[in-house]
Design a binder for these strands. Structure first.
Lengths: 351, 351
DNA sequence: ATTAGCACTCTATTTTGTTGAGTGCTAACA
DNA sequence: TGTTAGCACTCAACAAAATAGAGTGCTAAT
């Protein structure tokens, strides 16, 4: 038995109907829905075949059919035709003239959540892939120094350093110079202990204080791999889909979104160079395919965006398996384009 | 009819039992529970009286009684005796050697949520009450300057400034000096437009660039009243209490916690100088007393903590009306003490 | 190959019955 | 006069039974 054109049409109709209603769909419905002009009986036969092939299944003997994971898979891979990009004026508006990456990301995640009605999350670029742009030490009090570390894309980190003995302005100046000349342009990942060691020696003539400062700065730079920032929004959209809304499941999902830790892994896994047919790093995980166990009743769509210079972040959208894939993919695509353009512009104003 | 000692004892017993079980409590239960040695019949009579007085109510004709809001009120005001402070070693451990306020707050809110099993939130101090400690402008590129603004309590704000024309080092130095001498020690609220105006004039001789910088810094300082940072944790604890866990209610509550905006108002309302009998700014809102409508099925306990110098933040705990008030109040109290001591230490290392 | 018709299945909903915790009231008791 | 035992009554919660209707699979006719 093979999957001929008619079977595909019917499968597509089943899935689309199910996406809308969330209810098992029966033969009669399809017979009206399609332009094939077939009676419900014929449809029944075909559905019976489709079920045998594993694309759909019956929740119980005398209910309609719902798509299986395999069915969804086929749908997103072959059946789903992409809508042409809608005009998305709103997004343009929301994103402009925000200065700091953080704010842009928060904005984006919010827009996505409200556009799609699914739970949404976004990560900033991983710090250790980011190039260091500039370090500034300033004295706050006699024994306290503030280190501001700025990296590509206007990422920024602050760190107070409590000194054991005071440091004078001259030393501070020298240190600033040293740090900047030595580290500028390197990615945070490239800054090794060895390098720090060398710097300490170069500066070491002066005093222990300097060594302490260098240490702290090094720590600030390196100790950051852990906390890739993640922003989430629309967690409560989950309640809009009855199949996810029972307390047990919802509780799990929401707490996963709340504490964010696990999510990092999921988003990291998004194959960064995945350039499939459609030419965009958009990845769809259906049901059990999802890397996180708690989400095996959901589908997860991820996309990576590019800030240039190897800085990449990831966007994830979490919804029921009967997610409106077309809409989501569409949204992600246009967003990607916009993000890319925003940051291209930002990074090279004149170039 | 008056509320004699025995009625109080019974009421207290009813409430305490209800706090534990969450089920309506019947006369028989109480007759065993108390040391009064009364039969269930007598208790019934008393309960009948209590109901008439409005302290308890029956969900339906032949169920046990549950406390009314009025009953809870009496309980927290009079009946509840406070446990002596438990040792809270964990907290000590968790809070030490975190440097930045932000991190401390995140930690605190997490600890509280896991200690109490309720949803928890905390605000940092309102910016405009905070004293400015130090401003530092540094050049990043030819036309981009980074302003770092540090306030009391190591609160910190960064702001990039894109200039229309380059600025030279000398100007930058002057500007730094000017900003610091003029603004140092003022609260962010005190920095008025007028003051900015004056500064612009003083500097205005030099160039428009300076004016632009001053403007941006001013904006950064002032435009911040809105985003008092709020951290939340344990939102999903809500699911632990059946009376809140039905999808509709839970969805409302969680989305309130998620977008945080409304919460600010609630916490602001916490009477800041409220020094009631117990001598601590702890406030309990039961049911409809809560300032936020969506929380009329909950109780909310708020406390304000003090960082000295007029900087205050607020902590809120949200749970079911049958919240374990004693435990919550206890937790908040010890936490207050600890927070206070941390920041006292931080602010005046030698004094 | 398609379709109409029909018997069958199974969930969801409604209806009815049953149980048990809890009450209010009365009458007896100390 | 306050307390208690006893009893009839109420009502939510649960379980069992009845009903409805959506959908299927199969067969026979087209």
């Amino acid at each position: 038995m093979d999957l001929d054109a008619r079977k595909k049409t019917i499968l597509k109709a089943i899935i689309q109907t199910y996406l809308e209603t969330g209810e098992p769909v029966g033969s009669r419905t399809i017979s009206k829905y399609t332009d094939l002009n077939l009676s419900s009986a014929t449809i029944r036969n075909e559905m019976s075949d489709l079920e045998e092939m594993g694309y759909i299944l019956q929740p119980h003997t005398s209910a309609g059919r719902i798509p299986s994971d395999k069915g969804y898979r086929l749908y997103v891979d072959e059946l789903m035709q992409e809508k042409e990009q809608e005009v998305t004026e709103i997004k343009e508006l929301m994103i402009e003239k925000t200065d700091r990456l953080e704010k842009v990301l928060k904005q984006v995640v919010r827009v996505l959540a409200s556009n799609t009605n699914y739970a949404t999350l976004i990560t900033g670029p991983a710090y250790h892939q980011t190039k260091l742009k500039f370090i500034q030490l300033s004295r706050v009090t006699e024994t306290q120094v503030l280190a501001v570390i700025v990296a590509e894309g206007n990422l920024m980190k602050n760190q107070f350093i409590d000194l054991e003995e005071p440091i004078d302005d001259e030393q501070l100046l020298k240190l600033n110079l040293l740090l900047n000349t030595q580290l500028n342009g390197l990615t945070l990942g490239e800054i090794s202990l060895e390098m720090i060691q060398r710097m300490k020696q170069q500066a070491g003539i002066h005093s222990q204080v300097i060594s302490q400062v260098v240490d702290t700065v090094a720590e600030a730079i390196q100790g950051d791999e852990e906390d890739t920032p993640i922003y989430t929004s629309g967690a409560t959209n989950i309640f809009k889909y009855p199949e996810l809304a029972d307390t047990a499941r919802a509780s799990q999902l929401i707490s996963a979104l709340e504490d964010k830790r696990e999510l990092v892994d999921m988003l990291k896994e998004t194959a960064p160079e995945e350039e499939d047919g459609s030419g965009t790093g958009i990845q769809i995980y259906i049901g059990k395919e999802s890397p996180i166990q708690t989400m095996s009743d959901c589908s997860v769509v991820t996309a990576s965006y590019d800030l240039g210079e190897g800085m990449k972040g990831t966007i994830g959208i979490i919804g029921p398996k009967r997610m409106d894939y077309e809409n989501v993919v569409d949204n992600l695509k246009t967003l990607k384009v916009q993000l890319d353009s925003i940051f291209k512009k930002k990074d090279e104003p004149g170039t």
